[in-house]
Amino acid sequence: MKQTAIALAAGLIFGAGLAVSGMADPQRVQAFLDLFGAWDPTLAFVMGGAMIPMAIAWVVQRRMAAPVAASRFDLPGTNRIDPRLAIGALVFGAGWGIGGLCPGPAIADLAIAPAPAAMFIAAMLAGMAVHRFAIR
């Protein structure tokens, strides 16, 4: 129950941050990615600003014996960049540029613009299913 409450609170804070920062607005995201047109640099400040609390979180995590809601930390290892990772990043970036959304903002947009967000999420889930059953 405690883990669920913490996850829900973190998700609500994350979603609110996406909405307040404009990262859930597809037009703003596309304007940010339009480097040679009407470029909007505001999301660069959002992303740069996100690095500050993350750096603090890593410092705090190193000093903790265990997380608040678990018996131990379960952190992923570092992997080398391989072709699968590079291709996945390119596909993700292309989808982000075309749709103006990525998974987090799309879910947050269900509260702001439900119909377009639902279409994006349906397509995203279909792509995930194709990957799971056809590629693996």
Results as ranks from 00 to 15, higher is better:
Asp25Gln: 12
Val60Leu: 15
Gly15Asn: 02
Ile135Cys: 05
Ala69Ser: 14
Ala44Asn: 02
Met128Tyr: 13
Ala50Ile: 10
Gln27Val: 15
Asp74Leu: 11
Met47Glu: 01
Ala117Phe: 15
Pro114Ala: 05
Met119Leu: 12
Pro103Met: 13
Ile6Thr: 09
Trp58Asp: 12
Gln27Lys: 14
Leu90Arg: 03
Arg72Val: 10
Leu43Ala: 00
Arg136Asn: 08
Trp39Pro: 00
Leu12Ile: 12
Leu43Asn: 00
Ala55Phe: 15
Gly99Ala: 15
Ile6Gln: 09
Met51Glu: 08
Asp25Met: 08
Gly22Gln: 02
Ala66Ser: 15
Gly22Tyr: 13
Ala44Thr: 03
Ile13Val: 15
Ala126Leu: 15
Ala89Ser: 05
Ala57Gly: 04
Arg28Asn: 04
Met47Gly: 05
Pro116Lys: 10
Ala129Thr: 14
Gln61Trp: 11
Ala65Trp: 06
Val29Thr: 07
Leu8Gly: 04
Ala108Gly: 04
Val68Cys: 03
Gly100Thr: 09
Leu12Met: 07
Gln30Asp: 05
Met54Ile: 08
Thr42His: 05
Gly127Thr: 06
Ile135Arg: 04
Leu90Met: 13
Ala44Phe: 13
Met128Val: 13
Pro67Trp: 09
Asp34Ser: 15
Phe45Gln: 06
Thr78Met: 10
Asp109Leu: 07
His131Pro: 00
Phe92His: 01
Val46Trp: 02
Ala70Leu: 10
Gly93Asp: 03
Gly17Asn: 05
Ala66Asp: 07
Pro53Gly: 09
Ala89Phe: 10
Gly88Asn: 08
Gln3His: 10
Met128Lys: 01
Asp109Lys: 08
Leu110Arg: 02
Gly37Val: 07
Asp40Leu: 03
Ala89Tyr: 07
Val91Asp: 05
Met51Asp: 05
Leu18Cys: 10
Arg28Met: 14
Ala123Thr: 05
Pro105Asn: 07
Leu43Cys: 01
Leu110Gln: 03
Gly127Ala: 10
Ala134Arg: 12
Leu101Gly: 00
Phe45Val: 10
Gln61Ile: 13
Val130Leu: 14
Gly97Tyr: 07
Arg80Cys: 00
Gly48Arg: 06
Asp40Cys: 00
Phe92Lys: 00
Ile112Val: 11
Val59Ile: 14
Pro41Val: 07
Ala19Pro: 00
Val29Ala: 03
Gly97Asn: 01
Ala38Thr: 11
Met1Thr: 14
Ala50Phe: 14
Gly127Ser: 11
Asp34Leu: 01
Leu125Arg: 03
Ala5Trp: 15
Ile87Pro: 01
Phe45Arg: 06
Ala38Leu: 11
Leu18Thr: 03
Gly88Leu: 06
Val59Gln: 10
Ile135Trp: 15
Gly11Asn: 05
Pro103Lys: 13
Ile121Trp: 11
Pro105Ala: 12
Leu12Pro: 01
Asp25Pro: 02
Leu110Ser: 02
Pro53Ala: 10
Gly88Glu: 06
Ala123Val: 08
Gly77Asn: 05
Asp82Trp: 00
Leu125Gly: 02
Thr42Val: 04
Ala94Trp: 07
Ile107Thr: 10
Met128Trp: 14
Pro53Arg: 10
Ala108Ile: 06
Gly104Val: 11
Ala86His: 02
Ala70Val: 01
Leu12Ser: 06
Asp74Met: 09
Met119Asn: 03
Gly49Asp: 11
Ile112Glu: 04
Ile98His: 15
Ile87Phe: 13
Arg72Asp: 15
Ala65Ile: 09
Gly93Trp: 13
Leu75Glu: 09
Arg84Asn: 04
Pro105Phe: 00
Ile98Ser: 14
Ala129Trp: 15
